[in-house]
């Protein structure tokens, strides 16, 4: 779930970021509105909207699909701002050097800007990854048998709240601590050629 949502978010985030820095107004303006709408509303509302409102327009999704899509879109919007910042942080001279060598805008983005921006955005992207993992709990509210949801069921069944929620807590921590360690490893890995 987390990985699927992150995959959608990464792809969507990159597309939105590129759209938002486009010189074409017809592309830039709607993308900016979309990103601000998503960032300005709660994830839970977006999930409900996708699952309960979209069927009215003929788009009926399974709970898992809706959850993936909701998380992907929500995190995509946030990540697009991270990516946009990363792209802007690559020095202007890099773009000029590439252009003066005759490279097209697309080649400059692909070979020069994005590889450098990518290293800049790894730490914040990793943080989003970890928090997306935690947000998958929200998805249980649209009836996915998620950890929290299952925990709730068992707890209300057995009244052993402390034990059940402690177990849920431990499961979360056991998964998310290695995840954030993984993020740190990724950071080091991708920073190597620059650090030398």
């Amino acid at each position: 779930m987390t990985f699927g949502g992150m995959a959608i978010a990464l792809v969507l985030g990159l597309c939105l970021a590129l759209g938002r820095i486009s010189t074409r107004l017809w592309l830039r303006a709607p993308v900016a509105v979309f990103v601000e709408l998503i960032r300005g509303s709660p994830l839970l509302l977006q999930l409900f909207y996708i699952y309960y409102v979209l069927p009215a327009f003929g788009l009926k999704l399974t709970p898992i699909m809706a959850g993936l899509l909701g998380l992907g879109i929500n995190y995509g919007a946030y990540l697009s701002e991270v990516f946009r910042g990363g792209i802007a942080a690559v020095s202007h001279g890099q773009r000029e050097a590439a252009e003066s060598l005759g490279m097209s805008a697309g080649q400059t983005m692909r070979f020069i800007i994005l590889p450098q921006a990518w290293r800049i955005v790894i730490p914040p992207t990793g943080n989003y990854f970890v928090s997306l993992f935690k947000d998958t709990a929200l998805v249980s509210t649209i009836s996915i048998a998620e950890l929290m949801f299952q925990g709730q069921l068992i707890a209300s069944d057995t009244f052993r709240y402390m034990r059940i929620y402690s177990i849920v807590f431990v499961i979360y921590v056991v998964i998310s601590i290695p995840a954030s360690m993984g993020v740190r490893w990724l950071e080091r890995h991708f920073n190597r050629p620059l650090a030398r």
């Binding site: 001279g93 890099q94 000029e96 050097a97 003066s100 060598l101 005759g102 080649q107 290293r119």
Partner: peptide, 29 residues
């Protein structure tokens, strides 16, 4: 831009590429 090269005050080499890759990138692409 193909016919006119430019050398900058701040060099503007591509830091994520080796010296050799810096030189070969544009001819290849």
């Amino acid at each position: 831009r193909r016919e006119v090269g430019m050398v900058f005050q701040q060099f503007n080499l591509f830091p994520h590429k080796t010296v050799l890759e810096n030189v070969t990138l544009a001819p290849i692409q």
